[in-house]
Amino acid sequence: MVENNERNSFGKVGKGFRSFLKFREAMLIFIVIGFVLIISIMSPNFLTADNIRSLLVGLALDAIMVIGMAYAIITAGLDLSIGSVLALSGVVTGKLFVMGVNIWLAALIGIIVAVLCGALSGFLIGKVGLNSFITTLGVSGIARGICFVITEGTPIPLINKLPESFKFIGGGKLKGIPLIVIIAFVILIVGDLLLRRSASMRKIYYTGSNEKAAMLSGINVVKVKFGVYIISALLAGIAGVLADARFGVATPIIGGETAMTLISAAVIGGCSFSGGEGSVFGAILGIFLLSLVTNALILLNISIYWQQLVTGIILVLAITLDHVRNKRMEQSMLRLRKI
């Protein structure tokens, strides 16, 4: 809602480039481009096909899951269970496959189990009205616990038994582009377009920016929240199956830091915890920036330990800058109205 107003009012004032600057994601695009330029000057290995391919493969799974996180944050919620649900779907798939179930059926069941987790959080947050942070924290504990119980703490190796067709999803290439990147790309486009264009998905913004107003204007807020957490778990489930296909092993400890990475990315990309703001595109740019930082530090031979510090500082800086910029925009909007 707020976003639309901003765009309209500035669309009248600025033209072309200037109105582009007012896009929320504009600053981030500049940062990413600037970053790419700097690294490619400093390290000749950056702009090579191999490096870019490994960069994209590395962020593909996170990119799929960040859609769910962005949706959750836009409804003024949060989904901390994504990492554990990712592990659960992978582990369930792997375990069923080892027990002799067809891999595609196993994957389907894995994704269904993930969706059930999402339904539990969705029910508790939407229907009962609990706080999303603590609910998804609890669901996360449950999912992670079941992972450990199923696997007894050890990874399940699958690589030797997996059929070629399933392995192809994780490791195959189409004209030099890894299939997993193409899958992620398609899901991202769909996720972004739906959020921008589909009427039912726009309800996510209304619910997030003012829940009471949304309810009074006839939006079924419970259903929206329920749907958001199911989508988020569904994407995590898909990512879990893809992780099985990519690594050839189902690990119970995968995704321990995922939720935090996704939250950082979504917030760097312009999602606000107060809800009603943000976009899938921004969140992906956030994931991209975080991966670039990691990649750059590796290429520049900087100790891996500095990476954490730099990531943390970038996060704090990005948020503070964005906040200051937003405030300035609000002020200039006020000035416009007075004129």
């Binding site: 950082s264 330990y305 500095w306 954490q308 510090l309 990531t311 996060l315 704090v316 503070t320």
Partner: peptide, 27 residues
Amino acid sequence: YIISRFSVEPFIITLGGMIAFRGIALI
């Protein structure tokens, strides 16, 4: 200071702090 003066979400600032502290400790 950052949280109170800029009224930014404490969740995200302390998340940044968490990542940064881990970095300092590891260094």
